[in-house]
């Protein structure tokens, strides 16, 4: 019996270690949040930041309060929300499509958002729609993301929403929207082209409390639906045939997860622009830390997404003391070696 008890004790110890990993990741994220708030061209020290926090948004130091409450805090909050959205969306995608390279970026959702944004930047002023000008771009990006999701789903449905068909449809949709985006860039004047390119960089500079609230509300709305399906998603890791035989309606689960992924991706990229690799890398890091139990893997993917984006924000500000390098560029550059590591790790099995 002692021989039999050892593996069970090890299983319990591993479950406890996973809990510690979640806490450690959250702690590292908290430190990075603090670093992000402290970093910036105005050079505010920790003591100054603390004084500004105590004084509040209406404190005597108007310039300092404005920097902290109107620039740094919204940007940090946006990094947390966008990172969490992309991490969750990436893990959902990889689970329902049984593909380690699936992510909102590789399935064309981000390309569609870019196209929507470019469309708004190029033709928005001419249309004279009853929408505030600064909201037209994110609204168009949001709608284009949802349209791309619908397109991928409808193509996949023709073949019974099989994972490989959905992945191929996603790749086709990505190239389709990238081509349309190139066409719009070709048509644009140099000034408009510059605006489009800046949007595509993916930057937290566009963040303000309104966009934080909108993205945060979409994330909060999605969380209960994700929580409801944690066991079903874990069961799907055993393979579709096994999951079905366990009484799981796999098609319905895929439909729900696809819809949530679309909402999370749209919430993330509409207000910040295209941010690649976070949705691809964060799920892999999460699984390597806590395994495939989605009760832990999903929250850790969210934390890792937030951690990657907050790190990128800090690095972007440290590398360029004047104007911060957009996080989209940092994640793209850092994401390539990470992607190679994922591929090599997957090859080794």
């Amino acid at each position: 019996m002692t021989v039999a008890a050892d593996p069970l004790a090890r299983w319990r110890a591993r479950a406890a270690r996973r809990g510690v990993a979640v806490l450690a990741a959250t702690l590292v994220l908290s430190c990075l949040v603090l670093a992000d708030i402290l970093t910036g061209p105005s050079g505010l020290s920790l003591a100054e930041i603390w004084q500004l926090v105590l004084a509040g948004p209406q404190g005597p130091d108007r310039a300092g309060a404005s920097i902290l409450f109107q620039i740094r805090l919204p940007q940090t909050a946006m990094a947390l929300i966008v990172g969490a959205c992309l991490g969750l969306a990436g893990l959902l995608m990889q689970t329902i499509l049984a593909n380690p390279l699936a992510s909102p970026f590789t399935l064309g959702f981000s390309a569609a958002a870019g196209f929507g944004a470019a469309l708004a930047i190029l033709f928005g002023s001419a249309l004279a729609l009853p929408v505030p000008a600064h909201f037209l771009t994110p609204i168009c990006a949001f709608l284009a993301t949802l349209a791309a999701t619908a397109l991928v789903w409808l193509i996949g449905r023709m073949k019974g929403t099989q994972p490989e068909i959905l992945v191929l449809a996603g790749i086709a949709v990505m190239f389709f929207f990238q081509s349309l985006l190139s066409l719009l860039q070709f048509m644009a004047s140099p000034e408009v082209l510059q605006q489009i390119v800046f949007w595509l960089f993916g930057s937290l500079l566009k963040a303000n409390w309104t966009t934080v609230q909108i993205s945060g509300a979409i994330l909060a709305l999605c969380l209960p639906f994700i929580a409801r399906d944690v066991w079903a998603l874990t069961a799907l890791r055993l393979g579709e045939a096994n999951a079905e035989s366990l009484g799981l309606d796999v098609a319905a689960l895929r439909r729900r997860a696809f819809l949530i992924t679309a909402a999370l991706t749209a919430a993330a990229v509409s207000f910040t622009g295209t941010i690649g690799f976070v949705g691809l890398i964060a799920p892999h890091v999460a699984r390597s830390l806590v395994g495939e139990d989605h009760r832990l893997a999903l929250p850790v993917a969210a934390v890792m997404g937030a951690l990657i984006l907050t790190s990128a924000s800090v690095v972007g500000k440290l590398l360029s003391s004047g104007a911060a390098i957009p996080v989209g560029i940092i994640t793209a550059v850092a994401g390539i070696p990470m992607l190679l590591a994922v591929i090599l790790r997957h090859e080794r099995g």
């Binding site: 299983w11 079903a232 874990t234 890791r237 055993l238 366990l246 395994g291 139990d293």
Partner: peptide
């Protein structure tokens, strides 16, 4: 899947 044997059995009552 890299799920452990015990986790896999628990999924029977998901």
């Amino acid at each position: 899947s890299a799920l452990s044997v015990l986790d896999c059995v628990l999924l029977g009552r998901r």
